[in-house]
Amino acid sequence: MRRRTKERLFFLLFRGCALVVALALLIIVGNIVLLGIGTISWEFLTQFPKRNFTDGGIFPAIVGTLYLMTLVMLIAVPIGVFTAVYISEYQGKSRFANWLRVAVNNLAGVPSIVYGLLGLGMLVLFFGWGFSLIASAVTLAFLVLPLVITASREAIQAVPSSLREASLALGTTKWQTIRHHVLPYSLPGILTGVILSLSRAAGETAPILLTGVVLTKSILPQDIWDTFMAMPFQLYALATQTVFEKTQDFQYGTALVLLVMVVLMNLVAIIIRNKYREKYKW
């Protein structure tokens, strides 16, 4: 009997752990939704901030974040997917592929602030790009590259080898097999990884802090060499600078818009993955 009691006790403890995790999520999201929802209005989403962030809206910060995500996608996705194809389809066991894997694993662990230092030292100063949208976007693309590669690799490797063999047996070349058989089936997995990476890029603050984001700017960025506003930085700056004392509504509003955007992207990614996991059961 004592063994059963022990089991019940420990399982209760584990349930408690899971409950704590669920509660943490609920409290944080609930707090921001409840306190932020009152600020959200059409004006808040479509106007420039006025009077030291006490009136108007966060339009330029939303646009800045969207610009960033678009550029990150254009840079990181082709490179990431190609690298994943290379690792999993071509040179799986070569020494170079091994180095590549080690490099990707290590890149995934590099702190975001260190990416910021790379962006500052290399892109902003050494390449002379200055504080700019493109410097921030490339820095964030570096940051999400390992995520894109890992997700794509897993998706590609989940395609059964019988499919490749059947295609090759019909006389196709390797690339034809990849292009027409492997990639279409791994697309949902790759897409999931891409969406998650972009949501990560949207929320990152430290790298753009060092490479080009500004708190106030009266116009939208004119080209990729221009500085820009972005939601995560705006939230950080308003929350920590005492100069802006009456910006609480703005802070919660920005936090809510950012949170909703990121959580929606996460949910879409999860739904795509679950749907196709059921559809393709090998």
């Binding site: 899971a18 999520l25 921001i32 603050t205 939230l235 992207m265």
Partner: peptide, 19 residues
């Protein structure tokens, strides 16, 4: 619960810092 954990992982650190 599993998607909930993933959503928690997706919350930007700046939002957690703000909270």
């Amino acid at each position: 619960m599993k998607p909930a954990v993933e959503v928690l992982a997706g919350i930007p650190s700046v939002v957690l810092g703000f909270f």
